[in-house]
Design a binder for these strands. Sequence first.
DNA 1: TCCATGTTTCCATTATCGTGGAAATGTCGA
DNA 2: TCGACATTTCCACGATAATGGAAACATGGA
Lengths: 120, 120
Amino acid sequence: METKHAVTALSALAHFSRLAIFRLLVARGPQGIAAGEIGEQLAIPPATLSFHLKELHRAGLVTQRQNGRFVIYAAHFDGIGALVAFLTENCCGGNPCLATKPRSRRAPAKHARRTTSAKA
Amino acid sequence: METKHAVTALSALAHFSRLAIFRLLVARGPQGIAAGEIGEQLAIPPATLSFHLKELHRAGLVTQRQNGRFVIYAAHFDGIGALVAFLTENCCGGNPCLATKPRSRRAPAKHARRTTSAKA
DNA sequence: TCCATGTTTCCATTATCGTGGAAATGTCGA
DNA sequence: TCGACATTTCCACGATAATGGAAACATGGA
């Protein structure tokens, strides 16, 4: 994933309504939800909802499929997975660390040295 | 984590420079980097850099500590961890699913049924 | 074919964010 | 105490995002 794409995905999620939509879809799973039902559950008017869904889709965070007159949206788990991976990529210079193993704090090997003269 | 906080964190990361800063800090690990060095590496002028670092700090994504005249910034791994957890929270209604086990696609139990009459 | 229903596009207004020079603030060493 | 250096605050301008009503665009059923 390149930075530009990651920024798009993060921007898509960085909005109250869109985050709520995404989490609703994540909770529902692959089954998905029709656009109308999303708008109903979250009290978002059609035009606004469509705008937000387009953003999420453009960012690769949701999939959409037509089902008759309905458009079913579902979370795209690979998309969010790739984003998460990107955020923690090359963590601590590639060494095992706090981000991957938050509990094993003893002896953080090579990468936990203080700055050359940091004491405060 | 509440939605409002998550939006703040996502907004903080949803910017080219800030994402670059964050990833630079993630790669460096707990050791952290002085503000000046960040600006140098990413070619961001002091005022702009300070603005972005403040955003990241406000969002709980980086920590800052004073070291003499320098201010050392480091990624706050708990912060990003909480955000990631929030994004996939209650995934597929709490059942094991695609998000947690992307490879086990057979028999996705209760949550992978099609919509009532979805065929397309 | 025509109507009802679901969804998207259009559009103009409002609000918020990003930028970076200059000045202010804080800290160290002499 | 003073000068040098690191970082932050102030500020004003330009750019971009969010909103939602109305109209347009699909689609299925009669």
